[in-house]
Each structure stands twice: as structure tokens, then as C-alpha cells.
Write a protein that binds this DNA or RNA. Structure first.
Lengths: 347, 347
DNA sequence: TTGTTATATGTTAACGATAACATTTCTACT
DNA sequence: AGTAGAAATGTTATCGTTAACATATAACAA
């Protein structure tokens, strides 16, 4: 792959030194204009493609960025990747994409490979589900340029781009409490070792506490990140507490909410009449559900852009600031929370 | 990025030659077991990561594959990428992902960069919309390993993985004709320079001809690939031919169909009562639409797997066969075609 | 003409790893 | 002890490009 023509070949044919060819093709000064012309033409006709591998070995830059995401099917991530792509492309970098499939082992391996590949920087949304920050700590201390997005690992010297999960989660919970007067509210939560799992649970609790609503621990259940795990968690909740069901459910993300809606309907109850439900993400499907899902709209594309910009800055600047960047969300009110379509508003 | 420890550093510390270190870390024979141990330990404690850039320069292999897709938001492609990822990961390769955004210029640039990067092979679904095969012809003749998927460019020496677009399109059109007795059928087609655009139109025509149904050229309109272009094309059709509307529409893919449904409903007509519609893809949203969309289910994940397998074979084998691989589709009957939910069956 | 700058080009070494060949150090056996 | 042969280690050159330094040619002034 790549052409097999090298500087040397061109040099031999034209009877000049490889260095002159290099200079000519990089349009440096100190090369006779006629020589340049000759070299450029010959390079083109011979189908020369510069070998970036060799160039990288010398320059110690690969103009390459590694992206690690935990899921590629959850529509949120492709949209983030689109944002990243756009920025990165315009800055002359290439993307290595790796999908860790929610497995931290795989994430670690991917990162090792990416580093061996000498990527200039890493954009990661971690699948980490236990408190094993040592891995990241080590590579960041070793000088790796890392920016986390969505699922952040904080206080280890890397910047992070995400939404304000805690506040957003509080807001949507308060919508349930203040607009609909629900007080029996459940939470389908994420793994507590993942930042969004923690933060969104905290936001839920903040809302409950702020409104002085007692918290029923039986109604706070671990539900993973996907449709199937959401379905299962909701189904168990319905089974185990059939005598005392919540009026509303706050799901940690839309796929989970989608699974939960299935479970509720299959259980013979209806949404939102028997149980209202809200999500978090604003998945591409959410407006199409029956009922349409009330959720927190997360600007995925923008998260990608911001993360990529921050990473490139981190790579290129002398002494980059470590930042926690928050991009604003908005409530996307639809009808799964109990709002009728004419009272729908956004906040 | 990457550690800055090299073989040489380790060698100096241990007072052996770099070669011995190389041999030890690659677990070659002819290195004393004790020395190996010493070297491995030191390498670990110094945080050594082999520099693949240097390795690649010597071996002329990067263990890297470039993927070029035309859209990343159309859910079909992330799913294909997941299939690719799985295969590629298990074979020890890494993925470079590039999104060409339906722009051929961008696709070309991406491929140039990827080749300069010396990827071992290329997986591409082309955004090509004019007859400019010269570009691919040249690089394939130059020895590049390329496998096309979904949107193929044929007869230029590269393998290709896709569904049987023509036959599938014919089948779903015949469903409209034979099961529902529609004869006034429109087609929202794709660019004719893209293989799927041509093939799916052909399949539509095959069905019409096979059933002896006259074709109304006004009802065959170019509709791009996306929701917005589908909406626009359908809207224009409705406006321009309000006096003589089709009873059914065959859209070249689901996003187009989704846009078209919006247009029809906004126009004040209902689906499928006034106009029935079918798509092609089986997008993640299609079962959630109102009405749920009848479509051709395309096994995206499998297409990805097959394409990746074929590429790796093409890279690694001596004298790889150029193949056209077709993966089977199935009709996914839902109700947008006029089937009532109890008569839904698959074929 | 001679010397002095520019300008154009060439040479060498380096990036980090490894293949190919060369050398040293063991082991084992007469 | 002496030596063949295996085992362990070292040296050199290479992959393709470029930085840093060196040299050759041209252009110009005195």
C-alpha cells in the first residue's frame, strides 16, 4: 500500500540528491525554481506519495488522534464522533477509532496500541467501571495528551468535556416533582464507578432532597447503559415491588428508558398514565417512541467539537490549561412525563 | 505520546546491546532466559512501549486499516463499522475511520492521507457521484488493497461486499404490486452514479416490467440519501403532480422514506391510506415510525464483518481472489405498505 | 583578477527497530 | 586440555525522511 516510490528513486532518476528532492517537494527556499519544477513533475509522474511513517519517525509527530468510545451503536457516540471528525479534519489530523464495547480491558488494550502507534493525542469516553484510575494516571503523568468526554475521569490531570450531568439530572427530576406533583419516583441508575452514573444519581437525589421528598432505596436500581439492561432492571423493579410501585421513573439515559418503557408496557401498565418516565441523551429515536420521550437533550456534536478542540490545543500549545468544560443541555419535554402535547415547552 | 523510552535506553542501563533487548522483548530464541527476565523487568519498570512507527518502517506493515464511510449519522454505517471493528480487532489490526460526508473530494483526500499513512488496506463505501473511476483504478493498479462495501465500484479489480440491491428492490416493489394491487407507484431514487442508486432503480423497474405495469417517468425522482433530501423530493412530487398522485412510493433507503413520510403527512395525506411507502435499510428508527416502515432489512453488522474478512484475506494472502460477495436481505413487512399488523409476515 | 557573499546542492547522521551477518562465550565430548 | 558446535550476544546496515552541517557553483564588488 502507498506507492513504493521513494525520494531516493526520484533523486536517482533526476541525478540529484534525495535531500534536494525532499526540499523541492516541501517547497523550501534554497532550491532552484527550475529544479523544483522538474522534481515536482517527476514525482507526480512516478506516483510518489510521501511516507508518513518515515516522516513521523523523524518528527515524532504522527498527526493522528486516537478516539476510544464505549459503544458505537448508541447513536450518541457516532454523533460525537462526527463533531470530533469535523474539527480534527480541519486541523490536518486523522482519527483512529476504537470501540471498547463497554469493556475496560479492551479499552486498555486499545489505548496501549494507540500509544504504540504514537498517536499525538487521545480522546476517551471511558468504559471504566471500577476505581482503577492508576492506568490513566500513569499514562497522563508520562506525558500523554488525553481529553476525556462524556464519561470523565477527574482530578488526574486531564481535561474533560461533558454536560453538567448532576444539574441536568436534578432539573429533569424537578420537572417531574414540580410540574406533575409526583413524589413516588424511582431511578434507573448507571454503574457508580462511571462518572455519569454517579453524577446523574446525585442530581436525582439533589432534586428529591431539595423538595423534601423521602427517598425509597428499593426504587434506586442499577440498570446499565443499554436497552436490554434497562428492560431487565425495570422488569425486576415491577416484579419485586408490585405492591408499591413508583409513579415516575428517571432513567440515566435514553436507551435505558426505551428498555424500561417496553418492560412497563409488557407488564400491562401504560406510560405515562400508570408510570411516567424520563430519559437523558435525546436519542434519535426518542421523539418517535410511543409516547415520545421527555429527556435531557445532550448536544453530542458539540461535545465532540469541544473535546477535539481542547485536545488539539493540548497537543499544540506550550503549557495547556487543564479544564473541565461543560456544555449546556436543555430539557426536551415530550409526553412520556405526563405533559400533554399542547403544554409542551422547553426550558 | 507513547513512552519515550527506547530499546537503546534499556540496553544502556543493562549494559547489553539494543539487539539483545529487541530479541528478549520479542521472545526470540537464542537469548539467555535470565537475560530475558532481566530485560523484561527493566522494560516494564521503565515503562517501555515499542515504537510501532519504527517497526512499521522496517516491516512495511502498519497493521492498520483505513475505513471510509459517506455518513456517520445514518445508523447503518456505525453498525457496519461495529462489524468491521470486531473482525479487525481480533486479527490484530487497528482502524482509521474517516467520514467523507458524501463529498467525493473529501473521500479522495482521506484516501491519500490514509495511503501516506501506509495503511495495510482500505475499506470504502464511496461517496462517488460521478463517473470518475480513474482515481480508484489507479490506486488499485498500483497495488493498493481495497474492498468496497455497500456502495460498490465494480470491475476495477477490487472485491465488494453488499446486498443484492437490485433483486431486493424488485422484491419489495413486487410486494406492493402483488399483495396490495398498487399500480401507480413512484420511486424516490438515489444518484445514478452511485451503485445503490442505479441498482435499486433497476430493481424497481424490473418489478414494474415483470408485472407489466406502465412506468410514469414523472414519478421517478432523484432524492439523495437523507431525511431532508427525501422530504424535499417528496414534497415537490406532491406539489407538481397533485392532480395525479401515486398510490405507493418505493424509497431508496429508510432516511429518505422517513423524510417522505413527513412530507406526505404535512401535505395532509395519510400513510398508508392515501399513499403507501416502503424503504430500504431497516434503520433503527423504522419500527418506531407512525406507521412503522416496511423495508428491506440489510444486515449491516454482517456486511461489516464480511468486508473486513475479505480485506484481511486480500492483505495477507498470496494471490487473493477478487470477489463480489452478496449478503442476503429479507423483507421486513410492517404497516407503511398497507399491511395490517395481523397480516404481517416476512419473506 | 581575486575575494566575498548568496544561492544551490550534497553528505552525514539521526529517528527506533530489526535482519543479516559476525563474534564471543559456553558446553560437551574426545 | 583441546576443540567442535551450539548458544548468547554484538555490529552493521537498512527502512524513508529530514536536520544540521559542508561544499560547490554563481553573482557581484573592488
Amino acid at each position: 500500500m502507498g506507492s513504493n516510490v521513494t525520494l531516493k528513486h526520484i533523486a536517482e532518476v533526476l541525478d540529484v540528491s534525495a535531500m534536494t528532492v525532499s526540499r523541492a517537494l516541501n517547497d523550501r527556499d534554497n532550491v532552484d525554481e527550475k529544479t523544483k519544477q522538474r522534481i515536482r513533475e517527476k514525482a507526480k509522474s512516478m506516483g510518489y506519495t510521501p511516507n508518513r511513517v518515515a516522516k513521523s519517525l523523524v518528527s515524532r509527530k504522527t498527526h493522528t488522534i486516537g478516539v476510544v468510545i464505549p459503544e458505537i451503536t448508541h447513536a450518541f457516540f457516532p454523533e460525537v464522533v462526527r463533531g470530533i471528525e469535523e474539527v480534527v479534519y480541519n486541523s490536518g489530523y486523522q482519527l483512529f477509532l476504537t470501540n471498547a464495547n463497554e469493556q475496560f480491558e479492551r479499552e486498555k488494550e486499545a489505548i496501549e496500541t494507540l500509544r504504540a502507534q504514537r498517536v499525538d493525542g487521545l480522546l476517551v469516553s471511558s468504559s471504566l467501571t471500577r476505581e482503577d484510575y492508576a492506568f490513566y494516571k500513569k499514562i497522563i503523568e508520562g506525558g500523554a495528551k488525553v481529553v476525556f468526554f462524556d464519561r470523565c475521569i477527574e482530578n488526574i490531570g486531564a481535561s474533560c468535556v461533558s454536560v453538567n450531568d448532576r444539574e441536568s439530572s436534578q432539573k429533569i427530576t424537578e420537572h417531574l416533582i414540580l410540574e406533575h406533583n409526583y413524589s413516588k419516583i424511582a431511578h434507573l441508575s448507571g454503574p457508580q464507578k462511571v462518572s455519569i452514573g454517579r453524577e446523574r444519581l446525585q442530581g436525582f437525589l439533589d432534586a428529591m432532597n431539595a423538595q423534601d421528598i423521602p427517598i425509597n432505596k428499593d426504587w434506586i436500581v442499577q440498570a446499565g447503559f443499554r436497552e436490554d439492561t434497562g428492560y431487565e432492571a425495570m422488569w425486576n423493579l415491577l416484579q419485586d415491588h408490585a405492591d408499591n410501585l413508583p409513579e415516575a421513573v428517571v432513567a440515566l439515559n435514553d436507551p435505558t428508558a426505551i428498555g424500561a418503557i417496553d418492560a412497563i408496557q409488557e407488564f400491562g401498565l401504560s406510560v405515562p398514565e400508570d408510570i411516567a418516565i424520563v430519559g437523558f441523551t435525546d436519542d434519535i429515536r426518542s421523539s418517535l417512541l410511543d409516547p415520545p420521550l421527555t429527556t435531557v437533550h445532550q448536544p453530542a456534536y458539540e461535545i465532540g467539537e469541544k473535546a477535539a478542540e481542547k485536545l488539539i490545543q493540548t497537543i499544540e500549545e506550550e503549557d495547556p490549561e487543564v479544564e473541565k468544560i461543560e456544555v449546556p443541555t436543555r430539557l426536551q419535554i415530550r409526553s412520556s412525563c405526563g405533559c400533554s402535547s399542547d403544554q409542551i415547552h422547553t426550558d
